[in-house]
Design a protein around this nucleic acid. Structure first.
Length: 484
DNA sequence: CGGCTTTGACCCGCGC
DNA sequence: GCGCGGGTCAAAGCCG
């Protein structure tokens, strides 16, 4: 099973081609009947006294015209594909360069990375979703124009004092204009407070994505390289909490906490925080993509009707998301919001079949351990094909749970693709696809910034103060090893 | 010897 | 202001 992650453009092309192929196949398979139908159609419009031969001749003409048109479209599609591929390549190169530049600039003067939020650390969180999705976009689908623009937006925001990418000056000008245009709106939101749909700004809150998985090892093999820098006994859990730092690239701000679940010691809770400043291995990309998709997902809803509460950090809230209407239609929106003000906006991305009927149950760890069996192909996951799988997202603004019939269907899908070695990426892709759909829907309603939170790596994003739980439990089976 | 883990100290935010 | 708890730092030790 392959999940088509192709871009809108690509999708449309595909659709076009599919249509054409269908037409073609119809022409081939049902040529006779079609000809008859056409003939009837022609007869309808043609004078009654037109000879039959003339009608047939007209049909052939129409067919040849259609076929010519199809050929032309296919060639056009090929050209477009090449353009998209080239754009992607350039885009990826730029991203890589940007990472290097950012590294050097961060070491020299962090303030060079201008941020709308005025907080560098938070702006890093803002970017958390980005690289991840970049990777996924790069490998799975080309970004749309709006996405590319969005990426440039993100880059530009940090490179305003940088003269490296001169070709982006125009875009930066646009961004500045946008910034100026939306600044009052954002400002008003910030000032209004949560009760009026505004954004509260508890300081120093960073987006977090938590992953729950069964793992015997001390830490999950998520494709990244980590170095332990601390350990603490957290209150309420005798199991020590370990602190890790990403060492894939020097200066990578991403950190993770690893702690055993109190209720089920076999469950490892890994909380990611920050943004990778480097490209990720495929396995890590999948993980990060999934997490970032979750973060993106919440971003899209983060300005919704629910009070953002203490967890939302205005300083890190991306301005291009800040103005999303509270009434933007969202398939993920659910009145049964999971919002724990005491813990900020805890969002739960639950990849288990353990759908809690109680929306207040943020961490149904104990119950989830009994029969949960998401058999994700992440390197850190254990797989057991005999189990059903469910995927559900839970959060402060929405509860997306695959239960009932949907759950069954989803479980089947997950089970089917679990055997695919590309499943890791597929899961991330699927979720990302949902996010993209969601974002597109939102953008239809909010034309300010047709941006897609595609950026992000380890799931963290500017959803500061919002904790995500990517819960992926599996029972038994062997770890699916990732081979980059 | 470099990289990693361990572990106590320290810092900081938050609640009382 | 004080205590608590979470998070980070950094020195010491371990390991390949």
């Amino acid at each position: 099973m392959e999940i088509d992650l192709s871009l809108k453009l690509d999708s449309q092309e595909e659709a076009k081609e599919d249509d054409h192929d269908q037409v073609q196949s119809q022409n081939q398979v049902h040529e006779h009947s079609r000809t008859e139908a056409d003939a009837e159609q022609v007869e309808d419009v043609a004078p009654v006294n037109v000879p039959l031969e003339e009608n047939l001749h007209t049909e052939e003409k129409q067919l040849s015209v259609l076929q010519t048109e199809m050929k032309r479209m296919k060639e056009e599609n090929k050209v477009l594909r090449k353009v998209v591929e080239q754009t992607l390549k350039d885009y990826y190169d730029l991203q890589t360069k940007f990472g290097v530049i950012r590294d050097s600039n961060q070491n020299k003067d962090p303030k060079n990375f201008l941020s709308l939020h005025g907080d560098d650390s938070e702006s890093q969180a803002t970017e958390a979703v980005a690289p991840n999705m970049f990777d996924m976009n790069y490998t799975k689908k080309p970004p749309s124009r709006s996405e590319e623009r969005e990426s440039q937006l993100g880059l530009s925001l940090r490179l305003q004092s940088d003269s490296v990418h001169q070709e982006r000056e125009e875009d930066q000008e646009e961004i500045k204009e946008d910034t100026a245009r939306f600044a009052p709106i954002i400002q008003s939101k910030l000032q209004r407070g949560p009760e009026l749909g505004g954004i509260t700004s508890p300081p120093n809150r960073k987006a977090r994505v938590s992953v729950r998985a069964r793992c015997d090892a001390a830490t999950m093999n998520d494709g990244c390289q980590w170095r332990k820098y601390g350990q603490k006994i957290a209150k309420g859990n005798p199991c020590p909490r370990a602190y890790y730092r990403c060492t894939v690239a020097p200066g990578c701000p991403v950190r993770k906490q690893v702690q055993r679940c109190l209720e089920d010691m076999s469950i490892l809770i890994t909380t990611y925080e920050g943004t990778h400043n480097h490209s990720l291995p495929v396995g890590a990309t999948a993980m990060a993509s999934t997490a970032s998709a979750a973060a993106s997902f919440m971003l899209l809803d983060s300005s919704s009707h629910i009070p953002l509460g203490s967890g939302t950090n205005s300083s890190s809230f991306p301005y291009h998301y800040a103005n999303i209407s509270p009434y933007s239609p969202s398939p993920f929106r659910n009145p049964n919001s999971i919002l724990d003000p005491s813990k900020g906006n805890n969002f739960v991305l639950d990849l288990t079949n353990n759908v809690s009927s109680n929306p207040q149950q943020l961490f149904p760890m104990a119950s989830s351990s009994s029969n949960s069996s998401s058999q994700l192909g992440f390197p850190w996951m254990q797989s057991n094909p005999s189990h059903h799988n469910d995927v559900h997202f839970r959060g402060p603004t929405q509860v997306v749970a695959a239960d009932g019939n949907n759950s069954k269907l989803l479980a089947e899908n997950v089970t089917a693709i679990a055997s695919d070695p590309k499943f890791r990426v597929a899961v991330a892709a699927a979720i990302s696809s949902l996010i993209n759909k969601e974002s597109q829907t939102s953008h239809l309603h909010h034309h300010h910034h047709p941006t897609v939170p595609k950026d992000g790596e380890n799931g963290s994003s500017s959803t500061a103060g919002k904790n995500w739980i990517l819960e992926s439990l599996s029972t038994g089976g062997n770890n699916v090893r990732h081979s980059p």
